[in-house]
Computed example of a mutant assay.
Amino acid sequence: MTVLASGSKGNSTVIASSRTRVLVDAGLSCRELLRRMAVAGEDPARLDAILVTHEHQDHIAGLAVLARRLKIPVFFTEPTHRAWVRMLTPRTTMTYAKWLDHVQREKEARATAIAASTPTCIQTAGLAAQLAAQSEAIASVSAEAAALNRSDDSNITLELPVDPDEEELCSPEPAEQKAEQKADPTHLPAVEYFHAGTRFSIGDIDITPFTIPHDAADPCGFVFEAEGIRMALATDLGYMPPNVKAALKRIDVLLLESNHDLEMLRDGPYPWSVKQRVLSRVGHLSNDATAEFLEKDYDGGASWIVLGHLSESNNAPELARLSAEQALGNQPTLLGNRIVLAGQSVPLDPITL
Rank of each mutant, 00 (worst) to 15 (best):
T2H: 03
L4N: 04
S6Q: 02
G7E: 03
K9H: 00
K9P: 00
T13G: 01
I15G: 02
I15C: 14
S18I: 02
T20H: 04
R21C: 08
L23K: 10
V24M: 06
D25F: 08
G27Q: 10
R31L: 13
V39Y: 00
A40E: 02
A40C: 07
E42F: 05
R46S: 14
H59T: 00
H59W: 05
H59Q: 12
L66R: 02
A67G: 11
I72R: 00
F76V: 04
T77Q: 11
E78I: 10
E78G: 09
P79L: 11
R82D: 07
A83V: 03
L88I: 11
R91W: 05
R91P: 00
T95I: 06
W99D: 13
A113F: 11
I114V: 13
P119F: 01
I138W: 06
V141D: 07
A146N: 05
L148Y: 05
D153A: 01
I156P: 00
L158E: 02
P161S: 14
E166R: 05
S171R: 12
E173F: 12
A179P: 08
D184Y: 06
A196F: 06
S201L: 04
P209E: 07
H214Y: 15
D218I: 02
D218Q: 06
P219C: 14
C220Q: 07
G221S: 02
L237C: 11
G238S: 05
P241Y: 00
N243V: 02
A246E: 14
L248N: 03
D252N: 15
L262Q: 10
L265A: 10
R266T: 03
Y270W: 15
S273C: 01
S273N: 08
S273Y: 03
Q276G: 08
V278D: 00
L279A: 13
L279W: 01
S280M: 12
R281I: 05
V282F: 12
S286R: 10
D288Y: 13
L294R: 05
L294W: 09
E295M: 13
G301N: 15
S303P: 00
W304K: 14
V306Q: 02
H309V: 08
P317Y: 06
E318N: 13
A320L: 09
R321L: 07
R321Y: 10
L322E: 14
S323Y: 04
T333D: 11
I339L: 08
L341Q: 01
P350M: 12
I351S: 03
